[in-house]
Each structure stands twice: as structure tokens, then as C-alpha cells.
Design a protein around this nucleic acid. Structure first.
Lengths: 150, 150
DNA sequence: ACTTAAAATTTCAACTTTGAAATTTTAAGC
DNA sequence: GCTTAAAATTTCAAAGTTGAAATTTTAAGT
């Protein structure tokens, strides 16, 4: 009986978490579309490449963003068409494809990036240092469970 | 300078939250596909209808699930094709379309629902009562910010 | 060298999702 | 009653997303 209650609470918490994430993503999507005429997945790819600061394998990219390979291919295709990214095949192993931001892609990302961070800052304006620490710790605990029971 | 640091922490926390949600959704998607040959959005619509326990307007449905109207139409179309849901137009106002689970749709949902809850329970196995309470409170605080600053 | 298995990426069909435009119906103001 | 605006839903094109199959390349074993 105590177990069932706990199970139900976990379900409710998951649903709440999902709602929060969905509404946040929705706001960020609007923000990027209205102000920069771009999309969240393109921004995410650019962010991953920018942070890594060196050419990334397609598989690294999809693993990092938790999306399928096919998805990564699709989004990189579009960024490539827009001239923000380009592909190079690795000489030592021609199976792998390396992706990196072009100079103009880097400029573009830097421009959006600051505004994006500000928007996130506004969205989570009610979370101060204490709350952020708590939330980080809780997420870590939850993630640990993910790894264990898989 | 303290402000910039806070802003960066909010960004990092958002990214962590997004990762947790993505990986959880991914596991649930696999679970539903492998064990019940269905998808997350269909399950979500059925869950909303089951919980409401009375016919819902299309707009209520999309508002509750935080998806666009077009999306709700699409997913309801598929559930209707599968015989799990049916549409009725409201007599007093023929603009509105009411959706409800069919008897077989209810049976189907009940069957999946328990297994789904168990899977969520496994995924968040590391969160006990204290953590769940903390997390719920934090989500509430974050949501409050959303409403205020919009 | 040859064969086979594994690895990395792309392709593909199916589905989901969005945002805007179109459609249908109701409500309001005149 | 007529016109116009608003509301609810659907339609539509474009984009994103997945999982499986296909392709290309490398590595391993014989």
C-alpha cells in the first residue's frame, strides 16, 4: 500500500516534469522563431558544436543530443544548406563524417546564444541559487536510477 | 557578476532538465512500442480522456497536453481509425467536437496504463517521498515564474 | 587475399508536430 | 435580418523524429 502510493507519486511527478519541459520548449521555440527565424533543433545542434569547439562525428552529435542518427542527419543537412555548418570526412577512416560550424555559423550562433540564455533566465526567474542546487541534485539522483535499472 | 552566474546556472539546469525528460520519454516510447505496439502521443491522448472520464473538446485536449490543435486532430484521427476513440459533435454548438474513449478504447488503456505506471516507477526508482516532495515544490515554483513573466 | 562481421552514416517510410490559412458555426452590433 | 467578428476545428505544407534497412568502409580471422 505504501508502495502503490509511491509509485503513483512518481507517475504524477513525471507528468508534472513533462508539462514543465513542454511549456518551456514551447516558449523557446516561439522565441527563436519570432526573433531569429530559426528552430530549436537547429539551435541545439549549433550549440553542441559550438561548445565542443572542434569537429564532431555525427554519432557523437546524436548521442549528445539524445536523438536518432537519422534525425541528426536531417538537421545537419538543413544547417549545411544554410551555410552554417559543413561536413568533412575523416581521412583516416572514411566511414566517419565530421561536422563543424562555419565561420558564419559561429557568428550566427553567438548572436542568438546570448539572447537565448536571457530568455531561459526569464523563464526560470523564480529559481534562485538554493532552488537550482536542489534541482540539480534531484536530477542527478534521478539520472542515477536511469543508469542502474537499464 | 552574480547575476550572470545565476543566469548561467539557470541555463545549465534547463539543459539538464531537458536531458532527463528526453531520456525518460525515449524509454517510455520504447516500452510502449515493444510491449504494446503503440506510441506515446496516442497513449497521452487516451490518458487525458480516461482521467477526465467524460467527453472532451478538441481544444481542451490540446490545451491539456500542450500541443497544437492540428496535432490533436491528427492523433485523434489515428485513435479513431483504430476504434479506440470516437467523435461526437455537440448539439447545442456545432462548432465543438467532443471526443471520448470507446469501450474497447477504455479496456485498451486500462491494460497499458498499469504497465506504464510500473515503468515510470522503475525509471524514477531512486526518488523517494522526500525527493518527490522537493521536486514537486520546485516545479511549482518554476511554473509560477512562467505565468508571471508571460 | 577473402570472407564475414562490425561500425558509421544515410536513406526511407511512417508518424508526429507546428503554425498559418481555410472552414464552419455562433454571437454581437446595428 | 444582416454584417462582421470571434470561436472551434480541420486542413495543409514544412519540418522534425523515429526505427529499420541499405550503403560504405574498416577490421578480423582464416
Amino acid at each position: 500500500m505504501a508502495q502503490e502510493e509511491l509509485s503513483l507519486r512518481r507517475l504524477r511527478t513525471w507528468l508534472r516534469l513533462l508539462r514543465l519541459t513542454r511549456s518551456t520548449e514551447s516558449r523557446l521555440r516561439d522565441f527563436l522563431r519570432v526573433n531569429f527565424d530559426t528552430t530549436l533543433p537547429r539551435f541545439d545542434v549549433a550549440a553542441a558544436l559550438y561548445r565542443q569547439d572542434e569537429p564532431m562525428k555525427m554519432s557523437e552529435l546524436s548521442r549528445m543530443l539524445l536523438v536518432s542518427n537519422g534525425n541528426a542527419t536531417n538537421v545537419v543537412d538543413r544547417l549545411e544548406q544554410e551555410g552554417k555548418v559543413h561536413r568533412v570526412s575523416r581521412e583516416s577512416d572514411k566511414r566517419v563524417v565530421l561536422v563543424e560550424l562555419t565561420p558564419s555559423g559561429r557568428d550566427w550562433f553567438r548572436e542568438i546564444s546570448a539572447a537565448h540564455e536571457q530568455e531561459v533566465n526569464r523563464i526560470f526567474a523564480n529559481l534562485g541559487h538554493d532552488e537550482l542546487t536542489q534541482l540539480r541534485d534531484l536530477i542527478r539522483i534521478a539520472e542515477r536510477a536511469q543508469d542502474d535499472h537499464r
